[in-house]
């Protein structure tokens, strides 16, 4: 196992803070995943991890490698962009699948959906 590179003080503290913030936000997301009572509420919880949790940890990695190698290391941006593009797609597919399964079993959870424009009738 390679040793940690010696970083200047400001960089080390910045990397440490970003890492801790990212890990704690991701943990909060999974706590939400275990705590919220219904599936449609639980689907919001992992987005905490995919938006800010991942962003903080990847920024920490970017700062660490950029400072220790003395050149900009930006390839973590790829993961960040990839995660922000793909999570909405997977969550959307999952939510639709859950809605479909609920409807197939006869209880339509979205039947009492609030209509945005009052008085307008939009059938499903």
């Amino acid at each position: 196992m390679n040793a940690l590179h010696a970083l200047p003080e400001w960089a080390a503290i910045l990397v440490a803070l970003c890492l801790l913030a990212g890990a704690l936000i991701t943990l909060a997301g999974t706590i939400g995943l275990t705590r919220f009572p219904t599936f449609y509420q639980r689907i919001h919880a992992p987005t905490l991890g995919t938006s800010f949790g991942a962003a903080f940890i990847l920024v920490a990695s970017m700062i660490y490698f950029s400072v220790s190698e003395a050149r900009p290391v930006l390839h973590e941006l790829l993961i960040l962009i990839f995660v922000t593009i793909t999570t909405p797609i997977t969550l959307m597919l999952l939510a639709r699948a859950a809605l479909y399964r609920d409807r197939a079993e006869g209880h339509d959870v979205a039947a009492d959906a609030v209509e945005a424009e009052r008085g307008e009738t939009t059938g499903h």
Binding site: Y40, I43, H44, S51, L91, T122
Partner: peptide, 26 residues
Amino acid sequence: LACIITATPGSAWVSHSSTNNTVLVH
């Protein structure tokens, strides 16, 4: 729009109906 709504924690795009162009959001 779907990516924006789902990527912000607290709202999720559930389904879009192309016949009457409405979207169901949780």
